[in-house]
Computed example of a mutant assay.
Amino acid sequence: MKILLAVDGSAYTKKMLAYLATHDDLFSANNDYTVLTVQLPLPPRARAAVGKEIVDSYYADEAEKVMAPVSKFLTRHGIIAKSVLKVGPAGETIAKMADAGKFDLLVMGSHGHGALGNLVMGSVATQVLAHSKVPLLLVR
């Protein structure tokens, strides 16, 4: 099975990984895993002021903060996963990656870092549900 794990470093990412670890059918070396983290784009004026190299370095550093513990967890359980960093609106970007990559399953936490903003704008999980045709497992 080809599985996309959408992670943001929140407590719900940890809950999602703990859930996977207890379900052998979802969590085995027989599956093909890709771990995705999405960074929100910096404002255009900020990007222009600091330059492409610094912006790219910032995105890479932020992604590493999220990905390092996830990679360590997966490696400890004998899982080798591809890591992908995307920049854009989280819900739409996750949905596009899931559809374009022809994944069999998308797994993510039900909530992430922007809980207060989600009250007004709608959650990332809701956006993924609205935009993706890939089956979604939300871990709460």
Rank of each mutant, 00 (worst) to 15 (best):
L4M: 09
L4A: 09
L5M: 12
L5I: 15
A6K: 09
A6M: 01
V7H: 05
D8S: 11
G9E: 02
G9I: 12
S10G: 05
S10H: 09
A11W: 14
A11I: 10
T13M: 10
T13D: 01
K14M: 11
K14S: 15
K14T: 12
K15A: 14
K15P: 11
A18R: 06
Y19P: 07
A21P: 11
T22A: 11
T22D: 13
D25L: 10
D25Y: 15
L26Q: 07
S28E: 03
N30Y: 15
N30L: 11
D32C: 12
T34Q: 12
T34D: 11
V35F: 02
T37C: 01
V38E: 01
P41M: 01
L42T: 00
P44M: 06
R45W: 13
R45Q: 09
R47H: 06
V50Q: 02
G51F: 01
K52Y: 07
E53N: 11
I54E: 10
I54L: 07
V55W: 04
V55E: 04
V55Y: 05
D56H: 15
S57Q: 15
Y58G: 05
Y58T: 13
Y58Q: 03
Y59R: 00
Y59I: 02
Y59M: 04
A60C: 08
A60M: 13
A63P: 01
K65L: 04
V66K: 04
V66G: 02
M67T: 05
A68H: 13
A68D: 05
P69M: 01
V70N: 06
S71R: 12
K72R: 02
F73Q: 04
T75N: 07
R76I: 06
H77D: 12
H77T: 08
G78K: 09
I79Q: 04
I79Y: 05
I79N: 03
I80S: 12
I80C: 10
I80M: 07
I80L: 05
A81I: 04
K82Y: 08
S83V: 09
L85P: 06
L85A: 02
K86N: 06
K86M: 12
G88I: 14
G88S: 11
E92D: 12
T93I: 07
I94K: 09
I94W: 13
K96F: 14
K96A: 13
M97K: 15
M97E: 15
G101T: 00
G101P: 01
K102H: 14
D104H: 03
L106P: 07
V107C: 08
M108Q: 04
M108G: 08
S110Q: 13
H111K: 11
G112S: 00
G112P: 02
H113W: 03
H113D: 00
H113K: 14
G114M: 02
G114Q: 12
L116I: 14
L116N: 06
